[in-house]
Amino acid sequence: MIGVGLAAATTMVLVQAPTASAATWTTFYAQESVKIRQKPTKSSTALGLVPKSAAAKALMSGGSVKVYQGGMHNACGSKGNIKYNQWDKVRYKGITGYVPHPCMLPFKP
């Protein structure tokens, strides 16, 4: 009897961990030519350029563009508000980096 109870006590149940959901990327267009930065700051290394009206993919989260807080900028129609600090993560021609949030539009300018 002791051996049977011990065998039952050592039975293992394997549970699979939930998998992370894949990132969703959606097409957006550059309002004006804008540099893709390595980090979400104006002083970060420029990795490339998205030309005006060019299509790039923006990272989405919950049905909206995922916005990152970063360095201050006054790019792309932010009306000179130097306190604007929101950035989008984008992919363009094999380059992934950050552009100021107001620079990317869901329609071609």
Score class of each variant (00 low, 15 high):
residue 1 M to W: 15
residue 1 M to R: 10
residue 2 I to C: 04
residue 3 G to K: 15
residue 4 V to D: 05
residue 4 V to G: 00
residue 7 A to C: 07
residue 8 A to P: 00
residue 11 T to C: 12
residue 11 T to R: 15
residue 12 M to P: 13
residue 15 V to D: 09
residue 15 V to L: 14
residue 16 Q to I: 09
residue 17 A to T: 15
residue 20 A to T: 12
residue 22 A to D: 13
residue 23 A to Y: 06
residue 24 T to A: 15
residue 25 W to G: 15
residue 27 T to A: 07
residue 28 F to M: 11
residue 28 F to A: 11
residue 28 F to K: 02
residue 29 Y to P: 00
residue 29 Y to V: 00
residue 30 A to T: 02
residue 33 S to F: 04
residue 33 S to R: 03
residue 35 K to T: 09
residue 37 R to H: 11
residue 38 Q to Y: 03
residue 40 P to Y: 01
residue 40 P to R: 03
residue 40 P to G: 03
residue 41 T to D: 09
residue 43 S to P: 05
residue 44 S to L: 01
residue 44 S to I: 03
residue 44 S to R: 05
residue 45 T to E: 08
residue 46 A to V: 01
residue 47 L to M: 02
residue 49 L to P: 00
residue 49 L to D: 11
residue 50 V to C: 11
residue 50 V to A: 03
residue 51 P to E: 04
residue 52 K to W: 04
residue 52 K to Q: 09
residue 53 S to L: 03
residue 54 A to N: 12
residue 54 A to G: 05
residue 54 A to E: 08
residue 54 A to W: 04
residue 55 A to Q: 08
residue 56 A to D: 09
residue 57 K to R: 07
residue 58 A to Y: 02
residue 59 L to H: 04
residue 60 M to Y: 00
residue 64 S to H: 05
residue 65 V to D: 08
residue 69 Q to A: 15
residue 69 Q to K: 10
residue 71 G to N: 06
residue 74 N to R: 08
residue 75 A to E: 14
residue 76 C to E: 06
residue 76 C to M: 06
residue 78 S to E: 11
residue 78 S to F: 02
residue 79 K to A: 11
residue 79 K to Q: 13
residue 81 N to H: 11
residue 81 N to T: 03
residue 83 K to S: 04
residue 83 K to W: 12
residue 88 D to G: 01
residue 89 K to A: 06
residue 89 K to H: 11
residue 89 K to Y: 14
residue 90 V to C: 05
residue 91 R to Y: 10
residue 92 Y to I: 10
residue 92 Y to H: 06
residue 94 G to C: 08
residue 95 I to H: 06
residue 96 T to V: 10
residue 97 G to L: 08
residue 100 P to R: 11
residue 101 H to Q: 10
residue 101 H to R: 13
residue 102 P to V: 11
residue 104 M to P: 01
residue 107 F to C: 03
residue 108 K to H: 14
